[in-house]
Design a binder for these strands. Sequence first.
DNA 1: GGACGGACCTGTTTGC
DNA 2: TGCAAACAGGTCCGTC
Length: 282
Amino acid sequence: MPELPEVETVRRGLREWAVGRRLSGVDVHHPRAVRRHAAGPEDFAAALVGRTFTEVRRRGKYLWLPLDSGDAMIGHLGMSGQFRVLPEEAPDGPHLRVRFRFAEGPQLRFLDQRTFGGLAVSRGGADLPAEIAHIAPDPFEPGFDADRCVAALRRRRTEVKRALLDQTVVSGVGNIYADEALWRAGLHGARPADALTGPAAHRLLGHVVDVLGEAIAQGGTSFDALYVDVNGESGYFDRALHVYGREGAPCDRCGASIRRESFMNRSSFSCPRCQPRPRGRG
DNA sequence: GGACGGACCTGTTTGC
DNA sequence: TGCAAACAGGTCCGTC
């Protein structure tokens, strides 16, 4: 379940292993992996072969790798996507979607069990691909404006958790870190976003930044083999989670039993005492 | 144009 | 034991 911290961990690995290497071959094993590349798998491969990755950049959960052609390869991990650095002789495995071969050295492989992830080449997209431009800056970008983000959050006439997950409000937040930030803020996710005071919205955003930053420092969160870095290793932040996946466990703050509720066809975890439901709902 | 529900997808877990 | 349903959830798209 890669959110911003997991994607940042992958970005750092790719920066080490992919930048400066010239592609000698690209094999698309599953067309769904490049479904966002409208011109098709052959065009995707042709735009990459002979080119060199010059950088690895990220906005929210999106990665893009600028090429020496001025184009960029965009990547999104979806729910289960992985970039792995593996020797040529390593077996393909059942989830291999795209293989990148270089003039020398190990291969880069894009694996994806649930196929929600995808790759594309953005023409002229080295600086900021047009396909990503609609996403709001994430809190770790130099251009991030907290006041603007808070204003966007408070304009949403919907529940605050849904607003946090809206990548046009703030990018990089997914189900896990939204729950954790709401727990830290003592807010139930069903609270109306447009009813938050300015200071309360700023505090919530501060918790979002804190929890994301702490998770980056731990190499991300991992519950199983679905999320690993380019070397196949897991992060450690799952040990620091306070509510996500802890149904029935005592709240680390007050001892009440953590509850699980269905929300947006997903699970939401919260403390019934620290995060009371808003009155008049549910 | 914003809000919101459903679709997409597959390996694992749970229930009968 | 075996089958079916439920579940995980980020993003896109259609509808209202």
